[in-house]
C-alpha cells in the first residue's frame, strides 16, 4: 500500500538559510504520526510543503503516491499553524464558503460541526470565538472532505487543559477510524499520548523516528535487592565493575535488558533476594533534548 505521506530529500531554503534539509519522511496509512520538534525546527514549513503552500527548494513530496499537481489534496484535510477564518462570517458560514471551494455538499457542514461539538455556537460570528472554539472550527474545516489524511499543526496550541484533553481525545477518535493523522507538535506529552509513531525534527533534519518505546530505548536494568552490598559485589563480578552503579538504594546495570532473567538467577543463587528487576528506560524528555541537541549540533 502506498504511504499516505512520502518525502524524498525534501529541502527548503530561504536565501542562505536552510530550514528543512534532506528530509525523508514516510507516514503509513492508518497511523497517527507525531512530528515532534522544538519551535523553529522546520515542522510547519514541512507541512506547508506537503500541502503545496510552500515550494520545496529540492526533493519531492508524494501524498498517497501522487506527485504535486491537480487533485493531489483530494484526500487531505489540514489545519496549519493555527485556525484562520473570515472574522465577519459565522463559524457555519465560514464552513459553507470552504465547502463551496471544496465542492462538497452543505450537509457535511452540519456533520463536522457536530463532530467537533461546535453546533450550538455555529451561528456566532467567528470574531467572537474563544481560541478553543477557533481550533475546533479549524479541525472541522479540515474534516469537511472526510479526508483519508488529516494534517494537524499544533492542534492544542493555546487551549486550556480541558480543551487540550478534548482535542487529544478527538484526534485519537479520528485516528481510530482508519484515517491517517499527521500531528506536528512541540509537546512531548501530547505526542506520547496520541501517536503510534514519532519523527523528531531538529535543525530542519529528521534526527530520529520510531515508536515512543523505541525512542526511549532500554539502556540497562534496574535492580532492588537485599542485602545491597552483596548484590553490588556479585553484580560487579558478573558484568564488570564499570557497568554497575549504586543509585538511590538500588543498582543501575549497563547491560542488555534481555539479560534480566540470567541476572535474576545468578543473584538468587548467590543468596541475594531480588525485590525488583526491570528494564531501565531513558526519560523521554531527556531523549528529546539529546536528539534535538544532536540534530542542531550536526547542522551547525
Amino acid at each position: 500500500m502506498e504511504p499516505s505521506v512520502q518525502t524524498e530529500a525534501l529541502s527548503k531554503r530561504y536565501g542562505g538559510r536552510t530550514v528543512v534539509r534532506d528530509l525523508h519522511l514516510i507516514v503509513r496509512p492508518g497511523e497517527v504520526y507525531g512530528f515532534l520538534g522544538p519551535n523553529g525546527a522546520g515542522k510547519t514549513t514541512t507541512l506547508r510543503m506537503l500541502l503545496g503552500l510552500v515550494r520545496p527548494s529540492a526533493g519531492t513530496v508524494r501524498l498517497f503516491g501522487r506527485p504535486p499537481g491537480a487533485g493531489r489534496l483530494a484526500d487531505v484535510g489540514a489545519l496549519i499553524e493555527g485556525p484562520a477564518f473570515y472574522p465577519y462570517l459565522s463559524g457555519r458560514d465560514n464552513l459553507r464558503v470552504l465547502a463551496r471551494h471544496a465542492g462538497v455538499g452543505m450537509d457535511r457542514v452540519a456533520l463536522v460541526l457536530d463532530l467537533v461539538h461546535l453546533a450550538d455556537r455555529a451561528d456566532d460570528r467567528y470574531a467572537g470565538y474563544s481560541l478553543g472554539m477557533k481550533q475546533r472550527l479549524g479541525v472541522a474545516a479540515a474534516l469537511l472532505r472526510d479526508p483519508r489524511l488529516l494534517v494537524l499543526d499544533e492542534p492544542t496550541n493555546g487551549l486550556d487543559p480541558a480543551g487540550m484533553a478534548d482535542m487529544r481525545q478527538l484526534i485519537r477518535r479520528l485516528g481510530a477510524g482508519g484515517r491517517t493523522v499527521l500531528v506536528a507538535s512541540h509537546l512531548l506529552g501530547e505526542v506520547e499520548q496520541i501517536c503510534d509513531r514519532v519523527g523528531v525534527i531538529a535543525g530542519g533534519r529528521l534526527v530520529a523516528e520510531g515508536s515512543i518505546a523505541q525512542l526511549r530505548g532500554a539502556v540497562g536494568l534496574w535492580v532492588l535487592a537485599d542485602p545491597l552490598d552483596a548484590a553490588v559485589a556479585h553484580a560487579r563480578t558478573l558484568v564488570g565493575t564499570e557497568r554497575v552503579r549504586v543509585v538511590g538504594g538500588g543498582l543501575e546495570l549497563s547491560v542488555a535488558p534481555e539479560r534480566a532473567a540470567w541476572l535474576n538467577t545468578e543473584l538468587v543463587t548467590a543468596g541475594v533476594a531480588v525485590r525488583e528487576l526491570r528494564p531501565r528506560e531513558r526519560d523521554l524528555e531527556q531523549v528529546f533534548f539529546d536528539l534535538v541537541e544532536k540534530g542542531t549540533a550536526d547542522v551547525a
Binding site: 506547508r48 500541502l51 503545496g52 503552500l53 491537480a70 487533485g71 489534496l73 483530494a74 487531505v76 484535510g77 489540514a78 489545519l79 496549519i80 499553524e81 493555527g82 485556525p83 484562520a84 477564518f85 473570515y86 472574522p87 470552504l98 471551494h101 471544496a102 465542492g103 479549524g138 474545516a141 479540515a142 469537511l144 472532505r145
Partner: peptide, 18 residues
C-alpha cells in the same frame, strides 16, 4: 491579513482556480 489563503487552498482548489 487573515492568513486565510492556507485555509482555502487546503480545501483542494489550485491557486489559479481561487
Amino acid at each position: 491579513g487573515w492568513d486565510t489563503w492556507k485555509t482555502v487552498l487546503s480545501q483542494g482548489p489550485s491557486r489559479l482556480e481561487v
